[in-house]
Design a protein around this nucleic acid. Sequence first.
DNA 1: TAGATTGTTAATCGATTAACAATC
DNA 2: TAGATTGTTAATCGATTAACAATC
Lengths: 207, 207
Amino acid sequence: MAEERLPLGVAARLSRYLQILTQAKKTGKHTISSKTLSEYSNVNPTQIRRDLSSFGKFGKRGVGYNVDYLIARIKEILHTSGSHNLALMGSGNLGTAIASSKIFADHGFNIAALFDADPAKIGQEVGSLRVQPVTEVAETVRERGIIVGVLAVPPHAAQEAANVLVSAGVKIIFNYTEALVDAPPGITVHSMSPAGELLYALYFYLT
Amino acid sequence: MAEERLPLGVAARLSRYLQILTQAKKTGKHTISSKTLSEYSNVNPTQIRRDLSSFGKFGKRGVGYNVDYLIARIKEILHTSGSHNLALMGSGNLGTAIASSKIFADHGFNIAALFDADPAKIGQEVGSLRVQPVTEVAETVRERGIIVGVLAVPPHAAQEAANVLVSAGVKIIFNYTEALVDAPPGITVHSMSPAGELLYALYFYLT
DNA sequence: TAGATTGTTAATCGATTAACAATC
DNA sequence: TAGATTGTTAATCGATTAACAATC
């Protein structure tokens, strides 16, 4: 029962297992083996068993792991049992796609507010959200206790949107754009890099 | 000048450096230090210098790395100097966002075709692409020499879309949905997992 | 020269893998 | 029992980091 912060690799893999388990549960799976988890995560099955067994004996030999039980334990380990409010910047195609997806909701993330810099979009409804002007970011972030901001704006607007979020008190910037985003010390910027990941996948196909 | 396949970690990091360098070039940067690259990639600067110096002396002491030169060398190392055609499945908000973005084009990926299962969408224009029916996947994939398929469909349609692509001869499935996707041996499935990455980022904020 | 940053070493730590007894 | 899969060991390999001489 480690109280210390997990090594980067372990935390990354556990997050991945959790995502896969959450989806597997949706398809009606009650148990899952390290072999199956390996196929979906591209992590070696021995590594998976090692990662899990370092926290306790979560599996049943000859059977595998109980999906619900494993989800609960990993959430405990990652301290992510709770729910968190997100602010989404950008109500274009990408912002709308994110707002319409259950992917964040599946993990207890609630998209609490949607902002756009375009005056023509203010007040429009996207799902259950109403598009708010950027001038309301600070107030909304404070009121709703938002610590994560998601950038779904055009690349040229990414830095400015990040600045607004950081000024408002957001601690984690989740950058869906390809633009580079700077932030002050203490603020985490996490950038999606689909093109980078595709280059990586292609490398192993080409060699 | 290694001819062998790179370790997974090295290939993943080089892909990441390439994505960052490509964006840095856009902002007019001519040189970049391992320290700056570290801030954008969250990789230790010593690790970056080690990764690069194992292929040659690419930098200038006291100055840093020339962006153009480094891009060219990493493309060589990853064998991704060429151009590749992609097939994009799904012309909803997500598909439209991907088709409208320069993120893939920046790395020599060309979205060659856009498919949708919804008859109402066939023939619509999305950027310079015309939405094609799924019945045309096989022919288009063959004609355009497509080896990568991108899934931007609703999660419940992801497996079926993947099946169609695999039958048509696609070798790499790039899954933007949260659904789990199975594929036969020899086919690579690479799934985006934004929620997983957010859980990971949050873990380090919470601890 | 002075400041900055690379290339490289050395030491430690985590990741990877095969193998297999334990056990469901 | 027979088959499957976990938990664990042991050995190797790659990642990480601090430190610093070399040099732009």
